[in-house]
Amino acid sequence: MAASIPMINTIMKRILILGSKHNTGQCRTTNLTWCRTLMQSQRRYQEESEAQENSEEDLTPKRKIVDPETSIRYVHSPEFVKGYGDKPVWFHYRRNFKGKIPPPTRENCIRQGEIATASPCPICRDEYLVLDAKNIKLLEQFICPHSGEIFDSMKTGLCQTQQKALTVSVMRAQDQGLLEMKLPFRTYDYEDYKS
């Protein structure tokens, strides 16, 4: 029984990041194609009876957990450029919602170690993107180059857990001096120090 895997379980989603089909106003002419396949976990699509029969090892593994050093290597690699080009990671991501006013982004794309949604946010969809204080190149993509502030999740499309992780990593990096913060100008009154 374990050998016969129904068609519905072999869902392999190849996500195309063309974007231009859905945009009405803007013209985004891109030829970027997503170069890696993202596996939807078989576990989510099997029926209850099958879940009891299939053992843990038969099913595809959960979302891979990658350590920050590997993520840093990935972000500097040619594969990253092939997948994202010179734009930030969130640039071509398009949220799906009804109506004109976007609601706040979802709380979580990943539940119990696997992707639980059809359109995960820019960080969750790529398991090699890990938000860490040392991963400066990735963090800088989420910071406005003009004002030095972190972009809102409404702009980037990050889920709330990733937005929090981003804020924490940026604060940690600023604390260690890896990222520069916006500093106020300290004015001194020499009279205070003369006593």
């Binding site: 001096g177 520069e180 913060m181 500093l183 106020p184 300290r186 001194y188 120090y193």
Partner: peptide, 17 residues
């Protein structure tokens, strides 16, 4: 060689003495 940033942040954080 990020001298200016280190000194600026030291000015913000600490007192001169």
């Amino acid at each position: 060689k990020r001298y200016q940033y280190v000194l600026d942040r030291a000015c913000c954080q600490f007192e001169p003495d």
